[in-house]
Design a protein around this nucleic acid. Structure first.
Lengths: 225, 225
DNA sequence: ATTATTTTGTGATTTACGTCACATTGTTTA
DNA sequence: TAAACAATGTGACGTAAATCACAAAATAAT
C-alpha cells in the first residue's frame, strides 16, 4: 500500500524537517499495516530489512530473558521501532507486540538510511531520541532494582497516566501478568498491591479501568520505595 | 592542551572516517586530561558543554537512584561518553567516574555537532553505537531482574573477562561494594558468592586478582540463573 | 446460552537474600 | 611502624516477596 507521507497526520516531529525528495522516497517505499492487540509487529530472531514506524496505537517491547520473556517497556505512537536491528545485524534483537489496535509503517532500511544521510536535522533527531532512550533505560534500571513492589507499581501507573494516556483515568492495556512482568514481580503481587492501593483510596479500579484519585500519594510511594 | 587528533593512537573506529577539516577542528578544540581511580569525569547535575572521549582507561557510569547511587555499567576506552547530555538538556543526567587511571578528551559540543553534520559515516557510527547501547540495556535489564545472585555475578565476571580485559586473568577494578551495587545485591552476598565460586574451583582469587579456571561452569551458572 | 479458558483475588508456606554484628585482613596516613 | 581506616569474610536472624493452591470472575469459544 502506498500513500503520501508528507500529508500523513501521524508524522513524527523529526519527519517535519524532511526534504521533498525524501518524502517522495518514503511515500513510494513503505507499507502500512494494521495490527490488533496481541499481534506481533517485530519478532525476535527474525531477519528484517525494515524500519518500523508505529503511527498509531500502543506496543510492548519484550525479549527473551534467561527464564522467560521480559517486557522492557511499553511505547506509544508515534515512534520508530527496530532501529537497533536496522543498524545492527539485521536480526531482530527483541520483539514488539501490539497491546492495542495499531497502525504501522514498514520502511525499507536503505530508504531510511538514505533519508538519514540527506537530512541532518532528521538524523540529529534520531540521535536525540536514542540518547533519551538510553537515559530512560538507566533510570528505569536504577529504580527497578532499588525500589520494592509498591514503588515500582506506583511508577508504572504514573507512567501510564503521564507519559502514555495523559489522563488520570485510563484503561490498562496489559493483563496483570504482563504488568507483573514489566514491573519485575509476580502476578499475585500485582493483584495484591492494586487492591491495596484501591483500599487506601489512592486509585479506583473498575475492571481494567483505573482512576488515579490521589496522585500525590502515588508519587510519594513512587519516591519512597 | 592541544594535540593532533588525526595522529592520535587512541582514535575511535568511527573517527577513522573523518575529513581533514574535522580533524583540524577537533585538534584545535579539545582538551586532554588525566584522571586517577576515583576521580569524577562527569558529574550528574552539573552543566556541561562538552562531549567526553575516554581515550584510555576504565570508568563506571552511575547515577542517583531513589535510595542510593547505582552503577549501571563499566566502560572501557575508547568510547564516547556524555552524548545523552550533549543532545539532551546540557545537564548531566548521570555521573562517570574513573575506576582505573584514565585519559579523557573534552570536546566542545558545537565542534562535535559540526563534525557529526559533516561526516555521514561518523554520524552513522554514533547511531550504531547508541543502538547497541540500547540493546545492551534491554538484555542487561532482563538478565538482572530474572537471575539471582550467582547468575548475575557469573555474568559480571564473564563481562570483565570477555568484554573488558579480553583475558581469563584480570584484576577487578571495583571493590566488592561497588561490584555488589553493579550486580544489584549486597556487599556480603558478593563476598559469599565469590568464595563459593573459589571453593567450587570455578575461579581462583588472589586479592583483587581473579582467574577464571572453569569458564564452562561459569557460563552455565550465568545461563541457569 | 453454556462450556471452556483466561484472568483475577487471597490465604498459607517457603526461601533467597538483605541486614546486623563482629572478626580479620589489607591499605593509607601521620 | 603504629594507629586509623577501608575492605573483606562469615555466622545468625528477619523479612519481602515468590510460590503454591485454590476459588471466583470475567472473556472467549462453541
Amino acid at each position: 500500500m502506498e500513500s503520501n507521507c508528507k500529508e500523513c497526520p501521524f508524522n513524527s516531529k523529526a519527519a517535519a524537517t524532511l526534504c521533498e525528495t525524501s518524502f517522495e522516497q518514503l511515500s513510494a517505499n513503505h507499507l502500512v499495516l494494521k495490527f490488533k492487540r496481541g499481534d506481533s509487529i517485530i519478532k525476535q530472531g527474525m531477519y528484517s530489512t525494515n524500519v518500523v514506524f508505529l503511527r498509531t496505537g500502543l506496543a510492548k517491547i519484550h525479549l527473551a530473558g534467561p527464564y522467560h520473556e521480559q517486557i522492557v517497556r511499553v511505547v506509544k505512537a508515534p515512534t520508530y521501532l527496530g532501529l537497533p536491528t536496522t543498524f545492527g545485524d539485521k536480526i531482530n534483537q527483541y520483539s514488539v507486540t501490539a497491546v492495542s489496535d495499531a497502525e504501522v509503517c514498514f520502511i525499507d532500511v536503505h530508504v531510511f538510511q538514505n533519508i538519514l544521510n540527506e537530512n541532518r536535522e532528521f538524523s540529529n533527531d534520531i540521535i536525540i531520541e536514542l540518547c533519551q532512550n538510553e537515559l530512560e533505560s538507566f533510570h528505569r534500571c536504577a529504580n527497578r532494582t532499588q525500589k520494592q513492589i509498591r514503588g515500582n507499581m506506583a511508577d508504572a501507573l504514573l507512567e501510564f497516566s503521564d507519559k502514555i494516556f495523559m489522563s488520570d483515568t485510563f484503561t490498562i492495556p496489559l493483563t496483570q501478568a504482563e504488568l507483573a512482568n514489566l514491573v519485575d514481580t509476580s502476578r499475585e503481587s500485582v493483584s495484591r498491591v492494586l487492591t491495596e492501593f484501591d483500599k487506601d483510596e489512592i486509585i479506583k479500579i473498575k475492571g481494567k479501568q483505573i482512576e488515579i484519585v490521589n496522585k500525590k500519594s502515588l508519587k510519594l510511594i513512587s519516591q519512597n520505595g
